[in-house]
Each structure stands twice: as C-alpha cells, then as structure tokens.
Design a binder for these strands. Sequence first.
DNA 1: TTACACCTTTACGCAACGTGAAGGTCAATG
DNA 2: CATTGACCTTCACGTTGCGTAAAGGTGTAA
Lengths: 254, 254
Amino acid sequence: MEYTVQKLALLAGVSTRTLRYYDTIGILKPAKMNSSGYRIYGQAEVDRLQQILFYKELGFNLVKIKEIITSPAFNAVIALKEHREQLLSKRSQIDQLIHNVEKTIASNEGRMKMTNQEKFEGFKQKLIRDNEKKYGNEIREKYGDDIVDQSNQKFLDMTKEKHDELSKLTEELNTTLEAAYKTGDPSSDIAQKTADLHKQWLMYYWKEYNEEAHSGLADMYVDDDRFTAYYDKNQPGTAKFLRDAIHIYTGKKQ
Amino acid sequence: MEYTVQKLALLAGVSTRTLRYYDTIGILKPAKMNSSGYRIYGQAEVDRLQQILFYKELGFNLVKIKEIITSPAFNAVIALKEHREQLLSKRSQIDQLIHNVEKTIASNEGRMKMTNQEKFEGFKQKLIRDNEKKYGNEIREKYGDDIVDQSNQKFLDMTKEKHDELSKLTEELNTTLEAAYKTGDPSSDIAQKTADLHKQWLMYYWKEYNEEAHSGLADMYVDDDRFTAYYDKNQPGTAKFLRDAIHIYTGKKQ
DNA sequence: TTACACCTTTACGCAACGTGAAGGTCAATG
DNA sequence: CATTGACCTTCACGTTGCGTAAAGGTGTAA
C-alpha cells in the first residue's frame, strides 16, 4: 500500500503541512518520490508516523521523539521517566500559579480597598523590598534555600490586614531609626529597639529568622549603594548606624 | 529618579532586551528619550513594570497583561478568573499526560516482551484500529460522546495481559469469521458466534456497548473501502457477510 | 585621544506548524 | 484535445517572548 501526503494525512488524522514539515526536519521521510516529485509513503512510514503520534500525545517534542525512535528501545524508558519528572514539576508550577492567582483574586475581590494601585504604589518601599529579595537570593546561596525561600510567596499570601500591619511597621521602623540615629549610639536602648523592629519587619519577607543572615544583611546595607542611598536619604550615615545596631543586636560585635 | 535601560533592568531583574521589546510592543514605553535617543524611564514606568512582572509571574501572556493594566481595575478580576480556569484545565491535561506516561512506563518496563516494536507492529491491525477510532468519532457525533470516548485512553490503559487477550481474540475472530463465511449463512450459529466475538473485540476499544452503534459500524465495514479491503483480503464478500451477521445479531434485520 | 562601558537599530533564531501564494500534475469530462 | 478541478510542489511570512550577535553612535574618565 502506497500513500500520497493527503492519503497518509487522512489516515493518521494530521495535516499535509505536518507531513511536509516532518520531512524537512527529517523525522519522517517518504519512502520515495515519484517521477513528478510527489512524496510516496509506504507501510514502514505509516508505522513510524504512528510512533511519532503516540509520543506526541504523551507531550514529547519532536526532537525528543526523533531521538527515541531512531535509537534503540532502551532509551525510550529513560526518556519516559525524564519526561514524567518534567511533567510533575510542570504540574507543581501550575499548582503554584493557581494558588497565587486565587490569592490575588481573593485580595482583589474581598477587600477592594487594596486595589492594584495601592498594592504597587510607593516606589521606595518596593525598592527596598526588591533589594531584600535580591539579597535574599544571595543569602540563600550562602545559608541554603530554606531561610529565604518563597519570600515572594509570603508576600502574595499576605492579607490586607497583614499588609496594613507591614505598612505601619515600616513607618515605625523609619521613625524609630531616625530618632535612634540622633543618639549616635548603636547600643542605646532605642537603637536596639530599632534593630528589633527591623527583625520583625524582615519576618514579613523571610520564612525563618537567623541571626547570621540578619547580620549579613546589615553588612550589605552598607556595601550596596542603593541600600545606603535609601537609608541615608535624610541623614547620611544612617545605613552604617543601622548596621552597627544590628550587629550588636545579633551579637556579632561586642 | 531617572533610569536608563540597564539601570531599570538591574533594578527589576530583567534584561535590557526585554525592556526594548516591551517598548516596541507598546506595553512599557519610556517616559522620554534624551538628546541621543536613549530611553529614560521614570517612577511611573517602574511601577508599571512591577505590575507587568507581577502578572507575568501569574502566567499571563503580554497581550493579556496589556489589557489588564491599560483598562480599569475591574477587568483584572475577570481576567484572573478566566486565567484560573485555563490553568485548571491545563493542569488536568498534564495529569492526563502523567497518567499516560506512567502507563507506558509500566508496560515498557514490567513486561519487556511488549516492546515498542511489538506494540506498534502489524500494520493491518493498526489500520483496523485506526478505522475503529475514526468511525468511533463518527459514532460519537451520532450517538453522543459517552459511547466511544477515550478509546485511545482505554488502549493506553491496557496491560500486557489485556493486550495478549486482545491479540488472541483478534485471531479467534479472524478464524471464526473465515469458517463462518464458508457456511454462507449469516444466521448460522458460527456466524452469530463471530458477531459475538466481534462485539467482545469491540469492547476493547469502546467504553460502552450499544447495539445501534455496533450495527452502524457493520454498515461502515461495507461502505469504507479500506475496511472492506481488510476483511475481504482472503475471501471477497467477507465484509458484507460480517455486516449481515452483525445485523442479525443486533436484531436490526430479521 | 584613547579606552571602555554604555546606548541605539536591525535582524536571525527558537517550536510546530497554519495559512496563503504561485505554479506544476493527473484524471475525468465536454 | 482542451479544460476543469483536485491534487501535488516549493517558498515564505506569522505566531510568542525574548536571546544573541552585529554594526555603529555616545559618555566619561584617565
């Protein structure tokens, strides 16, 4: 039995374009060409196409399929297991997305006060948050995933109430820091109060608290210009002051 | 605060290419261009970018994001709900894939006798199966989805044992049909036995049995050349004979 | 002025085809 | 025998969200 493109396409339920494409990428070449240059497929090609379609239904891409069907059968099992892993991780990604979308729906719907506008307004807070996250990544590398993982997730999971709490806490931290700075003494009660507020504030972004990480972050406040610029915006030296206070608070320095 | 492409890219954790792309597709235009044609972004653009990235993390494509952030907030909730539906259906698709992949792994691994080669070899059987499926689709349109749904699925779910049963049944069907044909009488015992075997054989592909569908399929055996060719390959007239036997069996004809 | 880091536009590449366009081929028909 | 209509062929652009050169202008510090 011999088939032209359309015959085979009809038989297999694919388009003729698909068969031509499979020819050009070399995954399914016709058995021969007739005198007019028509593609002629035979039984072997039908079988091969069946295999291709089978693996395609399992979600493999054509490159993988080519590998599988051109090399010995043992590769198939390996490929299948790899593929299963990929599918599983893809599914958990989607689960995450669904979770986040639902959270967003809830926060958009239930409490309309927290509009998108509000949620994203205030550049400075965002700058800081982004930097926290950025340093979170560095800390993650140093101290392992668990400490910082899913700060983003925590933020998304935040309800309006939590969000308001955070806003208040941020303000309190700022005013307390300003007052503490005026004492000039990082070991003063108010400076230590500031460090404690900073810890609490941090806990909105980090899943677990860890003194070493906290102290490390404080170092980075001085090392990174954008951090420094933010904390020093009213009074230069504030970043350093906060760092010292945190060092004392975490027991890193005398 | 003003940002060039790279500054903003660094801040937001995206590439400069991305920002330029967002400019060309009009989802994020810079606030202005300086005298040399450099893109300059301001605070509003940073905010907008944050929104874009937020929705991107939720898995929206850029067209949808553009719709959401350029039109009033109420669209956002609708879009989110639609998006959730899409994600849910995507997840169940993936669940299907995982299920199928696992079945395939099991059939490849547990019982090595059923290799891919075997599984897909034998063009005639496949041709018939494909035709069954094809007609399945037609029957589906006529009698509703339930009757034929997931014949493919059923095939995938088949274990080695089932597969062997099916092979044996197919052979029995063929030999019985041949013998029955020689009697020349579609109402003969052996012809009716054949019809019954055919029903059993069909049940490997259909979820539910239905006399009308069975009888309809028999008609198609005569109407479709490929079917006819298959059944008539040894003795011409076999397709017709089988059809008549099935008609009697299903009570369609005296 | 030289180096170097930054900026610009243009454009190909990726996956798996869909969708024309422009033009030959084959069988049946008037 | 010419025409029709259904087939076949090879380009080649469009899809999504950028990555990755390439070729060339700009800013600034040494």
